[in-house]
Design a protein around this nucleic acid. Structure first.
Lengths: 213, 213
DNA sequence: ATGCGACAAACCGTATACTTCTGGGAAGCA
DNA sequence: TGCTTCCCAGAAGTATACGGTTTGTCGCAT
């Protein structure tokens, strides 16, 4: 590993902050401020910010960079993509899955269940994130992997929004258990079906939430 | 229209050059050279180049920016994505399609056919590009549209590679005609089926070519 | 003749300084 | 009091400069 450039460091730092939800809905990220905070010049910060814009994590306004405002319509459009891609991705991942990965998936489910028992929403969120990261890493088709990874932001937003609801928590856990079982058995058909059901359940939960507001 | 920034201008210029195939397989795009050519400083050029990298049009090496080297394995991975996404996209586009767009599609097919009669491969290429651009623009789901658009480069590479073969030319034209008919009739089912056949035919042509080398 | 090492050029990453543009707020007018 | 106008601060955009790293080549020694 040669040396991580400032741009890379700052990019990863900002991405982590965004993914942890530390950036508020109306916080404005300004290059000069971040540069001063990190003790570097504006340029690496600027380039990191613009990379985040290119990947859809931020939008650039004429007055600082902000979070994109994830209109419900956009989230529903992403659900279409998920329905089309993720069942196939899960099926291929199940076929290619190593035993260690399957175990790690089961562990992530158990962690999420334990977190729920302690009303630890953050822990549950992290566990479900880890679950997703792990099965996604097992998808052999790298292009498919990258495409699914790209709308991670929307998926996270949906999780964050729907996760507070106890019935939804149960739906998520049950879905993850079914998936973990299919992955452990390397059953591609069952994995594809379970994933389709999982995505549809997530969409239903999101629609109920969006309608309720 | 406020005013296109240098970065935007250069980005669009470079993208157009890439899409027209003016960048050779082993040309190295260097910021200083492009900056001198355009009469601006390195910074806007750099940012344009990095945006192209983020979108997958280029890869940044330690010695200039180059075209990604599209391994056949990658192209085949993209075909999986196309099989999963484009039939659905075509079906929804057919339902939403305006009469003017359907006419434009038919016109693009006619142009391509005319170009073939004059052995004008470039014209045929441009016509099939226009055909794709137009039906894709009619996809209502913007997320789906963007996702499909992102692997445009691979699609172009396949076209460029397979297009010289006369039987393949006929397959492409026939596929486009079937699609244009389905679009004109706003027949979502037929459009989806035609698109699936079109993608599969393209994949078969590419596989034949890759095996033949 | 070939392999290894040093030198030079090229290019990227970063820093600093300057310019342009946008948006908000204050002041003036109806 | 509400609306319009003008001004200014802040932020993006751009220019120029410098250091570091990689790469390619030339020369020397084996």
């Amino acid at each position: 590993m040669p040396r991580p450039s400032h741009r890379t460091r700052i990019y990863e730092d900002l991405l982590a902050r965004i993914q942890r939800g530390e950036i508020g809905r109306d916080d404005r990220l300004v290059d000069t401020a971040i540069a001063a905070e990190c003790g570097v010049s504006r340029m690496p910060v600027r380039e990191a910010l613009m990379q985040l814009v290119a990947e859809g994590y931020l939008v650039g306004t004429s007055r600082g960079f902000m979070l994109p405002d994830l209109a419900p319509a956009t989230v529903l459009e992403v659900f279409v993509l998920r329905r089309l891609l993720e069942p196939y991705a899960a099926a291929t991942a199940a076929q290619a899955m190593a035993a260690a990965t399957a175990d790690a998936l089961a562990a992530a489910v158990a962690e999420g269940e334990a977190a729920l028992l302690h009303d630890d929403l953050t822990g549950f969120y992290r566990a479900s994130q880890r679950f997703r990261d792990r099965w996604l890493a097992a998808v052999p088709n790298r292009e498919l992997h990258g495409t699914i990874h790209r709308y991670m932001i929307q998926v996270q937003a949906v999780r964050r929004a729907t996760m507070r609801d106890p019935p939804t928590q149960k739906v998520i856990l049950d879905g993850q258990k079914a998936l973990a079982a299919a992955f452990a058995a390397r059953d591609a058909v069952a994995a594809g079906e379970a994933m389709l059901r999982f995505v549809l359940a997530g969409e239903a939960a999101y629609r109920a939430l969006a309608a309720g507001e």
